[in-house]
Simulated scan of single mutants.
Amino acid sequence: MLKQFIALSLSLAFCTAGFASVETVKAKLAQQYPNVKINNLQTTEMQGLYSGTLDSQIVYVNEDAQHLFIGSMIRLKDQHNLTKDLAVKENTIDFKALPLNDAVKTVRGNGKRQLAIFSDPNCPYCKTLEGNLAKLNDVTIYTFIYSIKAQSILPSKQVWCSANKEYAWKNLIQNGIKPTAPANCATPIERNLELGKKLGLHGTPAIIFSNGYKVMGAYPAEEIEKIWKNFGL
């Protein structure tokens, strides 16, 4: 697949003359394919090929807006993965700026690796992710209870008001057992909703790595391990 992508891209580069501007490519996309919403369109190191994001995935489009490429762009000179750089740039959140005191903290092993999770207790994918996270070792997990479903507000506040927040959260998200603590304490639930909106999180679950890289969905434990390895985290 990679060889095919490079071959196609090289042929495109050699066959194209008089390269279009980003605005021209945007206009062609809007006119010819109005339902294809490519964000953050920009030039690449390869003339005549432009990068952007489509449904949070890095894609490439040629200057006549007739061909879309999905795959890794490798700079042959140093074997550098330019697509990986774009993925980090387009999906990065300042981890150090997250208000971690507003999250439920879970530590396993030495806790040296860190994750921030945005999760709704009534989200089925969040329940799946919680099971996947349980397979990870040597990790500190900060779970921001992100109650985007109306029915999640009350039990989320009850979790926060529980004497053991971590236990109450796990019991709710994994076993469906609602907390018994009254929701009569100050909670960060509303702040978490505002934070999620500010970060552009329109769904759950969201996973944020300590370098700020963000992914959406119930990633398997082995995929999370791969991301840690790829980024040296």
Rank of each mutant, 00 (worst) to 15 (best):
K26M: 00
T128H: 08
L2T: 13
N164E: 09
L115N: 12
D120V: 00
K170G: 00
F5Q: 07
Q158S: 01
N137E: 15
A30L: 06
D138N: 15
P179N: 14
Y50A: 06
L201T: 08
K3L: 13
T187F: 10
L41N: 11
L54K: 06
A181I: 06
G203L: 08
L115Q: 08
D85M: 02
S51F: 03
P182T: 10
D85V: 03
T53W: 07
P121N: 12
L12H: 15
D138W: 07
N62I: 06
Q4D: 06
S119Y: 07
N192Y: 02
H80F: 05
T180E: 11
Q32L: 08
Q57P: 00
T24R: 12
R113Q: 14
D138T: 04
S162T: 11
P182N: 10
N184C: 02
C126I: 07
P188H: 11
M1D: 05
A27T: 09
F231P: 03
G176Q: 08
G18S: 10
N62R: 13
I224W: 11
I224G: 12
R75Q: 14
T24W: 00
G176K: 11
S11A: 09
E194T: 14
L41S: 11
S11H: 09
N171A: 13
L12P: 00
T83L: 03
Q42W: 04
K135V: 01
M46A: 07
P179K: 12
H202V: 04
N137L: 07
Q32G: 05
G131T: 07
H202G: 09
A168Q: 12
N137H: 13
A134W: 13
E23Q: 14
L12C: 08
C123R: 13
A168G: 13
V36S: 05
K28P: 05
N192E: 04
V36L: 13
I58G: 04
E23F: 09
Y167S: 15
M216C: 01
I58K: 04
I74F: 00
G48H: 07
K127D: 04
P155T: 05
L115K: 11
V25M: 07
F14N: 09
M216L: 09
A183Y: 01
D55P: 02
K37G: 03
M73W: 11
T143H: 06
A27L: 04
I177K: 13
K214Y: 03
P99N: 05
K105C: 02
K3I: 13
K37A: 10
G212Y: 02
V159G: 12
A30P: 00
A206W: 01
Y167L: 15
Q32M: 04
K197H: 13
D138G: 04
C161G: 13
L29K: 02
K165N: 15
N81H: 10
L100K: 02
K26Y: 01
K84I: 00
E190F: 10
G109I: 08
V107G: 03
F95G: 03
F69Q: 01
I208R: 00
L201S: 02
T83P: 05
I58H: 02
A181L: 03
T204K: 08
G196S: 09
I153S: 06
R113V: 03
S11M: 07
Q47C: 04
I148P: 10
T143G: 03
K26V: 05
L129R: 13
P220R: 08
S72W: 05
D94I: 11
E90P: 01
F144L: 03
